[in-house]
Design a protein around this nucleic acid. Structure first.
Length: 535
DNA sequence: AAAGGGGACAACCGCCAGTCT
DNA sequence: TAGACTGGCGGTTGTCCCCTT
């Protein structure tokens, strides 16, 4: 993987020889005044730098240029040394163990390359970063989850343990662990509480080591949307319709949807995909022909649903664990003129709801909040970065955290109630779900931007009242802003509002009536029963 | 054989935080 | 205390190689 500096072989070679010879032509920020060299390093330069560092040690990089005559700025020298010349660098491809570690670390840390590198002796942050980015692309193209389920579980379990050690979330007893988990306790708590929004993998509970899921109301196995595979690789840009087709995070919420019976197969396939150079050649775990997957409980699993942005649509500050993995995303939804923007910038599909299999581009698959310029003041289309939704969501998280503090039972009940979803409960979940910082979860923006009302969101639609009510029910120090966020969430949930009898987004994305929708109109009371029963 | 696309990776850029003066 | 300096970090870019079509 890593090539020796002296091997400056191929690339850069040409460019280097040209640019490298033109002293002064490549002045950058750090060397503008002096006309220092840029571009690829030559062996001679490497030798000079090596000698200098050997003699003087690392640091004081700006002095290198002065004392060694090297026409490189200090930054460049440091980078060259750190990434290529350091004697302790490990060369070659990552070992399977290293790869596993990288994935695990990324699940924990997000795009903290330097910290990850610290955990991988001999590896540089740049190397890891490149590896990861490449890997992400590959997985996205293959429509596979970024993180293997076992890694997700591991991370979750780790967090759970941390909570066990410190039920109050102060986590003061274990600085190391605390340091290792930059994920705010609050976020993780809410993450747990909120798993209901992402329910569909009950079988996951059977995964060894997942016993934590069975505690604290984890039974609904929700937070696993991030493990949902996305669509098989696409060849054309996804249309707006596809963009809004499936509120993956929203998902059905109905516990009954559940994981395809052979979820383990998915993990296997995932693992396989990791090694398969050509993801397109995968025997896709989502192959519709796989009856195990597509016919679970007579419903197509979400995994098979095109447009499942389960974990690929995170708006994601790239530094966010899990969600951070989504950084390789296009700037925004890709609007087409076949679609209309509703009040909050979401797409209102006007074309066929059933995209072709190849319609989902793995790149466009990932979404960022639409540029604010394109969707000004749409109260619903809230960018986690700009609209205050983050605060709103955090507030919601706080609220839920508080709720959670009331006791595991209540939290458990709350989680379980997601199955039968009285609106209040649903609302709450949505708010939490929207936490952009939530590891293994989705940002509000991603959720909101992805889930688009199937029929638009004009206020005169059936679900409007409910939405407004929902928004109005939200009281927070953030006032209108918060309400706007809630309205946005409500907007997203239009399908629910339109079909109150459907526990969760029944509707039909792609013309599919997907599973997980417990379309029974069960009285909320049942939820209590279920909750009591352990979900 | 040529073209196109993806993978790999080195290097640069901009920002930020800590330290120094 | 403020500004400059330095190092570190994460994101992005640009190039070549390889494979597929």
């Amino acid at each position: 993987m890593m090539t020796n500096g002296s091997e400056e072989k191929r690339k850069w070679k040409t460019r280097g020889e040209s640019s490298g010879n033109e002293e002064g032509s490549s002045v950058g920020k750090c060397d503008a005044a002096i006309g220092l060299k840029k571009g690829p390093w030559t062996s001679a330069e490497d030798a000079i730098l090596m000698e200098y560092v050997t003699t003087h040690g690392e640091g004081n990089w700006n002095a290198v240029q002065k004392h060694s005559g090297l026409s490189r700025c200090g930054k460049s020298c440091r980078l060259r040394w750190a990434n290529h010349l350091r004697p302790d660098l490990k060369k070659g491809a990552f070992s399977p163990e290293e790869e596993r570690l990288i994935i695990e670390l990324h699940a924990k840390m997000g795009n903290k390359w330097a910290r990850m590198a610290a955990e991988l002796p001999g590896r540089t942050d740049n190397e890891i970063k490149n590896y990861w980015n490449t890997r992400i692309k590959r997985l996205q193209r293959a429509g596979l989850p970024i993180y293997p389920p076992e890694i997700c579980l591991k991370v979750l379990e780790g967090n759970h343990q941390a909570q066990c050690m410190d039920p109050n979330g102060t986590n003061g007893g274990d600085p190391v662990q605390k340091d290792h988990r930059e994920i705010p306790e609050l976020v993780f708590k809410n993450f747990k509480i909120n798993r209901g929004v992402l329910s569909y993998l009950p079988n996951l509970l059977d995964v060894p080591g997942s016993n934590i899921m069975k505690q604290d109301g984890f039974g609904s196995s929700n937070n696993y949307a991030f493990m949902l595979p996305t669509l098989p690789p696409p060849k054309r840009l996804r249309t707006a319709t596809e963009d809004c087709i499936f509120p993956a995070v929203v998902d059905t919420g109905g516990v009954s949807s559940g994981l395809p019976p052979n979820f383990s197969q998915l993990t296997t396939d995932y693992a396989a995909s990791e090694r398969i150079p050509d993801p397109f050649g995968l025997s896709s775990p989502y192959d519709p022909s796989d009856v195990n997957i597509t016919t679970y409980e007579g419903q197509p699993p979400f995994a098979a649903l095109p447009g499942s942005h389960a974990f690929l649509n995170d708006d994601s500050s790239s530094s966010e664990p899990i969600s951070g993995a989504m950084k390789l995303e296009l700037p925004s939804l890709q609007y087409t003129d076949t679609h209309q923007l509703d009040s909050w910038g979401a797409m209102t599909p006007t074309a066929s709801p059933l995209p072709s299999v190849e319609s989902v581009d793995t790149n466009t698959f990932i979404q960022s909040p639409p540029p604010t310029t394109e969707q000004p003041e749409s109260p619903g289309c809230l960018s986690p970065r700009s609209s205050g939704l983050l605060e709103a969501v955090l507030y919601e998280s706080l609220t839920l955290t508080n709720m959670n503090c009331l006791g595991n039972n209540q939290a458990s009940v709350a989680a379980s109630m997601e199955h039968h979803l009285p609106f209040d409960s649903r609302k709450r979940d949505w708010g939490i779900q929207a936490d952009p910082n939530s590891p293994l979860g989705h940002s509000a923006a991603s959720v909101f931007s992805v889930c688009t009302p199937m029929s638009g969101s004009s206020s005169d639609e059936p679900g409007c009242e409910m939405k407004q009510e929902m928004a109005s029910q939200v009281s927070s120090p953030y006032g209108e802003e918060k309400q706007a966020a809630a309205a946005a969430a409500a907007d997203c949930m239009q399908i629910d509002f339109n079909r109150p009898d459907v526990l969760l987004g029944s509707g039909s994305y792609f013309g599919l009536s997907y599973g997980g929708c417990v379309e029974k109109g069960e009285p909320p009371a049942t939820a209590q029963t279920d909750a009591a029963g352990g979900g």
